[in-house]
Write a protein that binds this DNA or RNA. Structure first.
Lengths: 134, 134
DNA sequence: AAAAAATACCTTGACAGGCGAGGTATAGTA
DNA sequence: TACTATACCTCGCCTGTCAAGGTATTTTTT
């Protein structure tokens, strides 16, 4: 049993396993702000449901990173309220019922903008935090 | 006079001016989690004080992006409490007194780790939000 | 057949970072 | 004298994250 307050928990890192046995980590706050974009991007491959989307994300991230369930469902609700995604019930497959999500036209426009923003963010942050060479 | 609630304000973007007259923007939540790293990186160029650090950041970001003062001083306090930076009063220059900050050994180690993390974050987010080519 | 595990969804409450709005003090300029 | 620029600081709100708790269904194990 490990005592662990909220502050310490927030400093915990997601372990990322790299090819060759190396491991790096990304803190939760770094991913903050990208949650909605990541979900929208995943839905561009077709309709999907929470559990599957999260597994897909973990897989693409190369290992241990994935959203916490509370974060995930909060994001779905936010995205649907903002008209970025639409949901419907499906009852196929094993296990419990699934709520499927589909990206909307507005969601696609948002995703396009988010991807542009990410490209820009990389440039700006590179300029701000990498070692200056000039 | 424009009515503007907090929610809308948080969705506002920092305008980034690019070479050639283009402009892009980066939302505040995207920068969240990088604040401390950006400050540490700036202090690697030598001791500096809040106002100057912020101007330096705006300049490097290519234009309009900069921390809000409340964000900046909150970060200084957090960094100093965590032993990443140390402060001392200076009274040179025009205008009011200045509190200078210096990066500590611990701060340098943290910055090195943060830079590694940023490199890793770029890879992971590229895999998660860019259009898949496979 | 009962227990366990896996699948799948959801809510509550607390926390930390960002920051608008407000403040203080100093020095130079109009 | 008033104004502006420099420079620092605090309060309180808002939002995203997520630990901890819950529910329901199906498959697997005992």
């Amino acid at each position: 049993m490990i005592l662990c307050n909220h502050k310490i928990l927030r400093q915990m890192k997601y372990i990322i396993h790299l090819k060759g046995g190396l491991a790096m980590s990304i803190s939760a706050d770094i991913l903050r702000g990208h949650t909605d974009t990541i979900i929208l991007a995943r839905l561009m491959d077709g309709d999907s449901y929470g559990y599957e989307i999260n597994k897909n994300i973990s897989q693409r991230a190369g290992g241990a990173y994935g959203f916490k369930e509370a974060t995930l469902y909060t994001a779905f609700k936010r995205l649907e309220q903002n008209g970025m995604i639409a949901s419907y019930w499906g009852d196929d497959g094993p296990g419990a019922r699934r709520r499927y999500y589909a990206i909307t036209e507005a969601g696609m426009r948002q995703l396009a903008a988010d991807r542009q923003e990410w490209a820009e963010t990389k440039k700006v942050l590179d300029a701000l935090i990498l070692k200056g060479e000039d």
